[in-house]
Design a protein around this nucleic acid. Sequence first.
DNA 1: TTGTAAGCGTTATCAT
DNA 2: ATGATAACGCTTACAA
Lengths: 345, 345
Amino acid sequence: MKFEAVTIKDIAKALGISTSTVSRALRDSYEISSETKELVLECAEKLNYRPNPIALSLKERRTRSIGVVVCEIANSFFSQIINGIESIAYDKGYNVIVSQSHESAEREAVDLQYLTSRSVDGLLISLSTETNDLSYLHELHDKGLPVVFFDRITDEINTHSVIIDNFKGAYEATEHLIHNGYKNIACITNSEFLSITTERLAGYREALIANNINPNSANIKHCFYGGMIFEEVEEAINKLLTLKNKPDAIFATSDKLTTGCLKTLKRRGIKIPENMGLAGFSNSDIAELLSPSLTVVRQPAYEMGKAAMELMLQLVESKRPVKQFEKRVLLPELQIRESSNPKNG
Amino acid sequence: MKFEAVTIKDIAKALGISTSTVSRALRDSYEISSETKELVLECAEKLNYRPNPIALSLKERRTRSIGVVVCEIANSFFSQIINGIESIAYDKGYNVIVSQSHESAEREAVDLQYLTSRSVDGLLISLSTETNDLSYLHELHDKGLPVVFFDRITDEINTHSVIIDNFKGAYEATEHLIHNGYKNIACITNSEFLSITTERLAGYREALIANNINPNSANIKHCFYGGMIFEEVEEAINKLLTLKNKPDAIFATSDKLTTGCLKTLKRRGIKIPENMGLAGFSNSDIAELLSPSLTVVRQPAYEMGKAAMELMLQLVESKRPVKQFEKRVLLPELQIRESSNPKNG
DNA sequence: TTGTAAGCGTTATCAT
DNA sequence: ATGATAACGCTTACAA
């Protein structure tokens, strides 16, 4: 396979026929006699022939591989997404090449450069927190590279995208805290430039308003790197705790932020839910075990990966460009742990 | 980039010179005048030329991509490993193609087939729990495909491998339980056919013996799919709880198994550490938050990924075959949570 | 029904 | 110092 790969030439030589005949026979072309076909197939089998995808790629100008850019692989949410992407890719005979931005715009640009230089057929991307210059991506898209966004999307590039109903998830989580008796709910959230932040903050605000609570901007803390740096969360909570009007609950808008909150509260000996209510987005396997009354918004990450990859294949495999771009919105699931044990319960 | 990729031909045409001159100029060949070089470089820059890696791969018979096979991506331990692999790959300009066996030998074989047909330059693999037939892998290795094992390794194929000191991790975790007053420590572990199982069980047994406790085989429960199927763990614990001589603590030998134990104990209302001691391998971000006295063996997964990839590149980039295979053994880290609150504390 | 030859993008060998 | 050509493995007009 490595040092002595069998090619159609070998088959042709062995059978004393031409390579084109072999090629056609292998592709079951109608213009080849069944006799020859059988011979070729048999010989291919015997020699353990495997087509060389590189040669094919060169010829067909497509690689059957899709580039994926996420901020972190080692993050339950994103690894579940990759899992979903991979499941579709596997079914359809596609390759997935994953790279990480580590929330750095620069690194993301390098990844993009790298993946496209690797001639991926398409790009599945969730923007980094630092990204504000979309020109390169725009350029790639304009040149015809199929692009699908997921989770952290942008409206600046007109293409397919997949998100969850961030507003709904945030709304429900916040409302659940309210229903459990919390009055002064803070929000720890990502960079204000991310699409998910805007959407989730809106849900949080709307839930407060719908329950006659005035949103207080002092209660909202942005963690630019979304909890990738733990100290960011710690500091945010420290600030919240020194507010004159100290919050009695926190809503965290992402996996890492929720974890960060849990860690910080634990370190400071603040009990959940007695001393502080907590609700948050999380896709960790064991998030539900963490605290008796942690309310978790679980995102359908696997489904998101599948949906994104399906849309990608739609773009890649449609001969004609897709006119109408599709935005798939998936519903999050609110997991409520022992809601019977609220603050005032 | 996609529809109108610039090639050396375009540069040659634009400059009215031959493609070979362009090629040489781009590679900074000594036989090209500095004038021409400058012209070519400038033109390449202007046209935004990018070399086509597919064409190069075809020519050089190498793809600069490495196949990775793990059982699950969405598993902290493995995603951290992939992270490590990716970090080295990124530095060295390599591609990583990840695929999952989902603990199925059949799927693993398909993955292998797929990756090699994709002409990866090497294979990084952690065996599935079902794998018992290594003949195909052996064949690939014999044909010259560089293979590096990590975590779940085999001695049947003589090549580089990376593991953690499983014996040590298991020994320390078990001993820690003993020091905290537990006398009858059960073990929930993976399939007996995995290398990690053998090593960790040995550590567990040795720790018991060293502390004058007789290992009791009834206390050892194998979960063939290593907790990928939750019910397996649940059943194992159920069986342990109905033993005449009911264990007072459990040692779980993998991430998923530890999580499974936590879930099961929680569901049954069994408190840790009062009603049941628990120690286990886990690489989850938040494992340490889970239970006041859960003792966690954390594996240096990121480092393992890096080490494996480094060994791989050593194999791939050395022109001569590596004679002496290297087995890197990394040290696990025992994370002890509130050990001051043991059973009898 | 089968063979010949060109081409995908690049580099290496051999001329010039 | 530069150009023509073959080769990497495969497919596909075009010939035969």
